[in-house]
Design a protein around this nucleic acid. Sequence first.
DNA 1: TGCCTATCGTCAAGCGCTTGACATGATTCA
DNA 2: TGAATCATGTCAAGCGCTTGACGATAGGCA
Lengths: 159, 159
Amino acid sequence: MESGTAFEDALSRVVWALRRAELAVQAAKEPGLRAVGVPAAHYALLVHVHLFPGLSGAELARRLGVTTQAVALLATKLEARGLLERRVHPRHRNVQELHLTDAGSEALQEADTAVLEVERRVREKLGPERHAVLRELLDEVTDELGGPSARQWTGRGQG
Amino acid sequence: MESGTAFEDALSRVVWALRRAELAVQAAKEPGLRAVGVPAAHYALLVHVHLFPGLSGAELARRLGVTTQAVALLATKLEARGLLERRVHPRHRNVQELHLTDAGSEALQEADTAVLEVERRVREKLGPERHAVLRELLDEVTDELGGPSARQWTGRGQG
DNA sequence: TGCCTATCGTCAAGCGCTTGACATGATTCA
DNA sequence: TGAATCATGTCAAGCGCTTGACGATAGGCA
């Protein structure tokens, strides 16, 4: 294993394959999302706000793996476009709950079509079983490497 | 299909699992790479220059999926640190060949240790067979979604 | 009541990357 | 030879995100 240069196989590792696949997915989603005027980052936030309405910006940031700044800037833009609504938390006056407007729900619906199309292509290419296997393997990787566990992302863990 | 909100399962899709896994991998690599003073983006360029010495900045950019600007800026920094060398192409005086210096090779070796550690953790978690399955599935996704085919990345396709 | 701590949100500065435009050099064709 | 075309590399401007610091609010404790 230590014989000579050890990284001739660098590009054939899983971590690289993962990066390539992620880049390909992003590239595949981008035109569809752009067509409906919802960049990828905006889409990600919209989905989370839809699935977990009323969360604070800081909490969203943790789930998305970005800083609170990024969420705040994004939220400002989405609010300006009328897709998102900031409400003051009833108990904590300094905290803002984020909710989707009707227009936001519509935009999300349209954007999701583009993402679903990519998911469909992958599913058709792999077939249902291997599609499911891939998801399971990816979740195990996420779990093993820590960070936000896959459970946390999909669960309704807190309110 | 149109029954109610259609994207309740958004976070359980493969495309999301892929993103989560990629984020986890990046987060897992980062501290190790930072320890040896080689950020992730620098590492990616160093690996490619090592595997395909003499490529032009534009060609590298295509393979890395970034712009020529990004490569040029990176190359400038790496050159300033003495890890990388710019040589004028013998025939095309306007083209610069990129090569690793000895210091660059050493830095790459150290940095690669951190990446290998992540790869090892994933391999141990999944076991050899499923590890290989994951790589195969990811390559198929990359192939299906087009962009730079997995072959192009690993192959010695051109010189 | 008053102090301390934690959390949330915002402001300012910096960094990395992209986009667009331009200059240079090499190849192709008339 | 001379002009058109293409690829490479660089300059300038803009955008998105991060880092660091600050003010504001709610809960814990004496």
